[in-house]
Design a protein around this nucleic acid. Structure first.
Lengths: 330, 330
DNA sequence: CTGCGTTACTGGCACGTGTAACTGACGAGC
DNA sequence: GCTCGTCAGTTACACGTGCCAGTAACGCAG
């Protein structure tokens, strides 16, 4: 709020030091609460007030250069699976990280893999989190870039965490629900978007596991585009029709309902994600809802633990707040 | 790919200089194509090969510290309006920016406004882009943080660019379409999510403008939650029912269709965004599709122009690739 | 041989910060 | 009176980069 209009020079800790009549080091100690320093309350206040008066903000690049680590956490999204689900996840994760002084940044990664590397060097993030596991090359690159916590890591039990852990859970729950309703022959329908293939297979496998455990035949797996006619054709093409269908997500489920409506047939369908459109469908769609906000918060917490050196896996995640929303379609 | 496993020290330009048997300055000149330097091809190759051999990547924080500007563009999302639309927008924008050596980073901003400031200082971005206009305080903060281009700026004609420009266009087109079908009394239905209020009003105003221009009464504006019963109640509550309804987006439109189905009535409805669920609705939903990828690309281009000093407004945007997708609901 | 411009480099400062190592002063203990 | 420990600070270096100013070597006109 002071009157330093002369030029638009950045306000540095030097300015604060001059204003407070102290050395820059003292200023730094106060502002960072550096442990092992004895600073009388009077001096501390002098510094804090000077900083406030000048509107001082530490310059992150310099800080990062010095300490070798920034307070940015990078969240790499492979592409855009769903809307509100992801949104809540990111929201809550950001909140938790902010509580620890970290800033969550998301980057949608679509292009070739080498601009991911550019990102790491450009941001020097404290940690990176992604949906898909990282390759060995990528891991090496991050290690060289001095990035501390990487979640999920590919070494971690050699599994694709994304599809194995929580997405798997969705498929399991879908199948459990339908089997509980007395169904014995299931189908699993995936979208034809290549970007969703890995995730889709994870869910389908989850359902297959449950069927196997119940002594039922494995589900027929079909892939359809988001198109009424194509969905109808797929449904009509089943020689031995299933007694109920699991869909990869609500959009696929809606496509199926539309296809069956066109054929004049009807099968129980369960979706996933509980998008707003699900409850307005004809018939209203039974689906799986996950509390993705909670999931985001837990993931962030795991990340923080990893940053503190405690080697925390993502074990906490599997069935976090995942439940069936029962409507009329199944 | 060399064998520098000893410790995990970062590879700096010093290493490259030593490897090439040259000074660090020369290395820098070569790698940055610094103009006004005469460097023989042989030397240049020597440097490039050394850098490649060591796998050198310049350390962005240091570069930023020195030059005062990073190659990151920050995209502040106020919250999560819609799914795939935004996704494409960001995707294409990122692509265009990457072509200019810039990296697009998105951050969902939900909390209090002061952690936005933290973001600027944490990233030192070259530019910031947001949906909502920035306050004077925020603008001042960015100026002090030495951020070059800010789009949209609040000074810019004093308008809310988000709702005035493109979103307005959606409302206009919806009304134009319905009027073209012979409708004379319209309603505009908004969602009750407070985060979408400003955008919703922009769209409703667009429709109102078109009605006024055509000498028709202004649309009734209603707000509904995403709930079948509530939608039914709203529809039933209209004393003088409209002859057709515009919805803020497809989700609202689907809610309306569900509500009317419950009442046993039926009115033409037009939505917006063309989400996948729209085509599977009963009846299939007529809606507005925008080529948001194109929009993202143009916005990014405008940003680049602004970065180059050419004062380019967002004028290019208004009706970029926005069109009616005609189905059966209207 | 001297003066001068060009080529091909190099030395060194600056960016803003964190922190280890140092210093002067003061009181306590022998 | 001297040493020693603690307090309250300061000095100085390092982080990795961009680039200005300088400088040897060399060719060439006078």
């Amino acid at each position: 709020m002071a009157d330093q209009k002369k030029g638009k020079r950045r306000i540095t800790s030097v300015d604060v030091a001059r204003e407070a009549g102290l050395s820059r080091a003292t200023v730094s100690f106060v502002l960072n609460d550096t442990p092992g320093q004895s600073i009388p309350e009077a001096t501390r206040q002098r510094v804090l007030q000077a900083a406030d008066r000048l509107g001082y903000t530490p310059y992150a690049p310099a800080r990062t250069l010095r300490s070798g680590r920034s307070d940015v956490v990078l969240f790499v999204l492979p592409d855009w699976p769903q809307g509100p689900t992801m949104a809540e996840f990111v929201d809550r994760a950001a909140q938790v990280l902010a509580g620890a002084g970290l800033t969550l940044i998301t980057h949608v990664h679509t292009g070739p893999d080498d601009d991911l590397a550019r990102l790491w060097t450009a941001l020097a993030p404290a940690a990176v989190f992604g949906m898909r596991p990282f390759t060995a090359d990528e891991m090496a690159g991050m290690k060289r870039a001095n990035i501390a916590a990487v979640l999920p890591s590919a070494e971690q039990s050699g599994h694709d965490v994304g599809s194995t852990l929580w997405l798997n859970g969705v498929g399991r729950l879908q199948a459990q629900y339908l089997i509980g309703k007395g169904h014995t022959r299931l189908a699993y329908v995936l979208p034809d978007d290549p970007r969703l293939r890995a995730l889709g297979q994870g869910r389908a496998e989850g359902a297959a596991q449950v069927c196997a455990e119940a002594g039922l035949p494995v589900p027929i797996v079909s892939t359809i585009p988001l198109d009424t006619a194509a969905a109808a054709k797929t449904v009509a093409g089943w020689r031995q029709p299933p007694t109920a269908v699991c869909a990869y997500n609500d959009e696929v489920a809606l496509a199926l309902l539309a296809g069956m409506r066109k054929l004049g047939t009807s099968l129980p369908v369960i979706g996933a994600d509980d998008i707003p459109a699900a409850r307005f469908a004809v018939p209203p769609l039974t689906t799986i809802a996950q509390d993705s906000g909670e999931l985001g918060a837990r993931t962030a917490a795991a990340l923080l633990r990893a940053l503190n050196g405690e080697p925390s896996e993502l074990d906490v995640l599997p069935d976090a707040g995942i439940r069936v929303v029962e409507r009329e379609s199944a």
